[in-house]
Amino acid sequence: MNTLLNGRLTGLLALALIVAALPLVLTNNFYLDVAILAGFNAIVCVGLNLLIGYAGQISLGHAGFFGIGAYASGILVTSYGWPPLAALLAGAAASGLLGFAVAKPILRLKGHYLAMATLGIGIIVSIVLRTETGLTGGPDGMMVDSFRLFGVELYGEKVWYWVVGVLLVAVVWLSLNLIDSPVGRALRAVHGSEVAAEVVGVDTARFKVMVFVLSAVFASVAGSLFAHYTGLITPAKADFFKSIELVTMVVFGGMASTFGAVVGAVVLTVLPQALTVFQDYSQIVLGAILMATMVFMPKGLLPTLAALFAQRRQA
């Protein structure tokens, strides 16, 4: 237990050092922009990993909560003049309430039934964002004002890099603390066997709802900040394909691995940019890489590499 705890603390420190050191390596704003987008995806994936990796509950509609956060900030700040921080909190509250409202009935489902139910939530959110043109701008999206905090505008890639980097470290720290708490042990029990967990007194319904709401809030906060950073949001950020992309990042990095979720988000955000050299074949190459990784590393990228490293140390 102490070894595992020390490993997580070491990982958190390593993440903080990498975040602090990256600006020394990223020499232009394009690289910083990619790092920022990777950070947003990583924040969502850390929350989604709590739901999928630790609680064992699938969600194919999580991009909907990302979209709710983004459009809450866009509408409240740009159209109604709300302070950006208040709009961010309102979006997080709306996502949390929606997550709470739908979690209890749909989390009674299992397997592909649960997947279809969560997919339906995401589709409904996406349809609303596309059709309410007077409020959301419809398929073309809407412009979003900059983020101001205590009268100071957050502007430029360097400033936003530090905002996203600090938030990512904080979210990972919160996730690790949750995993090491009684709540985390309850989530692992739910994942292992709901019947066995209920026999020993775990309120499985309460813990599943709790982690679903928390992951929805993480996605909403990332969506709100993303909207202010890019200055433009479209319904595409809340559609089915974005949800699949997020789930793929979690599975690729390694389920039930907080740092694996971060690695998966970073790799699958950066990799498409690197594969542009293949031009028209970039998506084919990306698909081949994902297939090869899942075939030869079924537990995910980071857990497999960690296991190989441990075996070499023992050899």
Rank of each mutant, 00 (worst) to 15 (best):
N6R: 15
R8F: 00
L9A: 07
L15P: 03
L17F: 09
V19L: 15
N29Q: 15
N29M: 12
A38S: 12
F40D: 10
F40S: 09
I43M: 15
L51I: 11
I52F: 13
I52L: 15
S59A: 09
H62G: 06
F65Q: 05
G67T: 07
S79L: 09
P83V: 01
L85K: 03
A90S: 11
A90V: 11
G99D: 01
R108I: 02
L109M: 11
L109R: 08
Y113T: 05
M116C: 05
A117L: 05
T118C: 05
T118W: 02
I121D: 00
S126P: 04
L129F: 12
T133R: 13
G134I: 06
D140T: 10
S146V: 11
F147R: 14
F150K: 01
W160F: 14
W162A: 13
L167I: 15
V169T: 06
V169D: 01
L174W: 04
L174V: 06
N177S: 08
V199C: 14
A205Y: 03
A205W: 02
A205G: 09
M210G: 07
F212L: 12
F212P: 11
A216E: 05
A219M: 10
S220D: 02
S220Y: 08
A222K: 12
H228C: 04
Y229K: 08
I233N: 10
A236N: 15
S243A: 13
L246Y: 12
V263S: 12
G264S: 12
T276E: 14
Q279A: 15
I284E: 10
V285E: 02
A292Q: 03
M294C: 06
V295Q: 08
A315G: 15
